[in-house]
Amino acid sequence: MDISNANEFLIWTRGSGFNIAVSIFIIGVLIRILEIVLLGRKQDLAEPRGTEWGPGFKNILSRSLVDKGTFRRSPFVVVVGYIWHIGFFVCLLLFVPHIELLHATLGIKWPGLPNPLVDSAAAVTMFAMLALLIHRLMHPVMKFLSTYEDYLVWLLTFLPLLTGYIAYHRMINPYPAALGLHLLSVELLLVVFPFTKLMHAFTLFLARWYTGAMMGRKGIES
């Protein structure tokens, strides 16, 4: 591989780099999910009061809405957490070039947003992420819980936003270098994804379902 100029760098990130990253991502995610689900659960012999499936799926949805008590006690984490997650998904899923990518790779498409809107979402998302990083460094509980992985994951999630913003605003020249850096940052994110807490993007559906199912069995509203 010769990355002597920006174009070759871009070609690599659009070609081999993307293939490598996607392969590691897919292999890693599948391993992680199979490792979990194949462990299975012991059959519950207690007579159930309710069903599992419905409450399990309901919990998948209802856990996206935060309970009142948590909001009252941690409004900052809740609000900023929503902002950055929503902002991130707006940037990821509603920016037309991204839709083109997802259409080409997954075969599905949907309408995008005008670029200036996505651009604002990116700026807001980055501010929210910075605020959460500062919060993580300051708040006694978050600081106590945080490991190097939390900061690494923060950085690797932040970089695609930052490099995307830089590429969109053409703040690094030549543009292929900026776009290449953006793709490289996304590829790094994909590579570390299966080995870090980023996996929650997939496993939270399992976690919420299992908990909701348990609650359903016992007749507790999930």
Partner: peptide, 29 residues
């Protein structure tokens, strides 16, 4: 260890919100 436990550990993002739900944290900080 079972599938739910493995799913739970895989999902934690260290958000710290559970602390606020626990009276042993809220009353001792």
């Amino acid at each position: 260890i079972d599938a739910p436990t493995a799913a739970f550990f895989s999902s934690c993002v260290h958000c710290g919100l559970c602390a606020e739900a626990c009276l042993f944290y809220t009353e001792t900080s």
